[in-house]
Amino acid sequence: MIRIARPLAVGLAAVAALTACSNPNNNDNAAGSAASAAPADKKLSIGFFGFAKANSFAQATWAGVQEYANANNAEATFLDSNFDGPTQVNQLQDAVTSKRYDVVIVQANDGTAMVNPIKQAVAAGITVVVEFTPVGGKYDTAAPQVPGTINIIDPPTVNGEGLAKMGLEACKTVTDGGCKVAYLQGFANYPLDTARTEAAVNALKAGGATEVISNFVGGYTPDSGRGAMQNLLQAHPDVNVVIGSSQALQGATPLAAGKKITFVGNGNSTQAYDFVNKGTWYATYALPEKAEGAKAAELGIKKARGESVPDSTVACEALTDYNCLGTKEALTGKTADYSD
């Protein structure tokens, strides 16, 4: 599941329903028809402003976007910002000026910096879908923060709370007494990660974890995860549960061999599923990102053609029957969206 302004997690995390988030099945606040609806026989052009072409998570989104677009008289293009916020801002501003796209789908590297260019896109009559991460200053909601946009979001705070919920459950599988939990941050001082980390740590403490360690940065690669785990074990050899991006935990997991430690990942990769199914990890936050990409394309195309669609969708509520809480039981019979 699951990150995001550099090598992503996205890893990626989950889902206690927030009252601030709109019900994805409620059309009372539906995004209305575009100012000038495209005829059904017009081939629409979609610009996908993804995190980075080199990122497996963004590639899963892209696969869903392409699949839906190709089946519904639309053509999609991946604009690669390579995790760079200013580059992505410039790309979208250029797209607004050139009027190249009928629909844009945005995975924001910097949700605050993208506010103005997205406002410009909406004002220019372009259908805008904000996908996965919020655009604006709030990280606890899927509700639109830029008027006129369609939003299909996994709120970072909801992600963090879901990781904490699974972490507390994992404690019961490795200890009968107090439980020491380590939360490996994605990136330090990155707004999305900061919001997710704070939500996870608060929920772990409120849920009864004996100690919560959150000062190690696991990042979104096996190498960074391995380094964080080495430092963690030196400082806290008695840790019981480790939570982090699925990529980071792939590097961290081998270091726990022979120790009574279990893991909770943040990502929907084939590797994460394999760890959970084998019992090496207790669970992973399993957001079906390819399905989310397809849904983003569907909502954007429908609105561009004049249909009314919801302006706010909480991804894990709409796309899964397990709120992305991917325990072994929940993932039985399900297939991962991508490989790390």
Rank of each mutant, 00 (worst) to 15 (best):
G111N: 10
A95P: 14
E67F: 10
D80M: 03
N72D: 03
L92N: 05
I105R: 10
V103W: 09
Y101S: 09
V96A: 13
F78D: 11
I118Y: 05
V106R: 07
L92H: 04
Q88F: 04
K99M: 05
L92I: 12
Q88V: 04
I118M: 00
L79A: 07
N70Y: 11
T97R: 12
T77F: 10
N73W: 06
V103M: 08
D84L: 10
A108G: 04
N90C: 04
N109E: 08
K99E: 10
E75N: 13
A108V: 03
M114V: 00
V96K: 07
V103T: 09
T97E: 11
V89W: 07
Q120T: 03
F78G: 13
N116P: 00
D94H: 11
A71D: 06
T87Y: 02
S98H: 02
N90Y: 05
A95T: 13
Q91Y: 05
P117N: 00
D110H: 05
F78A: 11
R100N: 15
N82I: 13
D102I: 14
N82R: 14
D80P: 08
D102L: 15
V104Y: 12
K99P: 00
V106K: 08
Q93A: 10
V104Q: 10
Q88L: 08
Q91G: 08
D102M: 14
N116I: 00
M114R: 00
A76S: 12
P86R: 00
K119R: 06
Y68T: 02
T97D: 12
P86W: 03
V106P: 12
G111M: 08
F83S: 14
N73H: 04
V115D: 05
L92Q: 05
A76K: 08
R100K: 15
Q120N: 06
A74D: 02
D94P: 03
V106I: 14
D80K: 03
G111D: 06
K99S: 13
A95N: 14
L92P: 09
A113M: 01
G85T: 11
K99Y: 05
D94I: 04
L92C: 08
F83P: 04
A74G: 04
N82G: 15
G111L: 02
D80Q: 05
T112W: 09
P86K: 01
V106G: 09
L79K: 09
A108P: 12
T77D: 11
K119S: 00
Q120E: 01
Q107P: 12
S98A: 15
N72P: 01
D94V: 12
G85E: 05
G85N: 09
A71W: 02
S98C: 06
A69N: 01
G111Q: 08
A113W: 02
N116M: 01
M114T: 02
S81M: 13
T112G: 15
I118E: 02
G85C: 10
A108D: 03
P86S: 06
A69R: 12
S98T: 14
Y68M: 01
N90M: 09
I105T: 11
A108C: 04
V115A: 00
D84N: 15
E75D: 14
A108Y: 02
N70T: 14
F83Y: 14
D94T: 15
D110I: 04
T112R: 14
A71N: 06
A71C: 01
N109W: 06
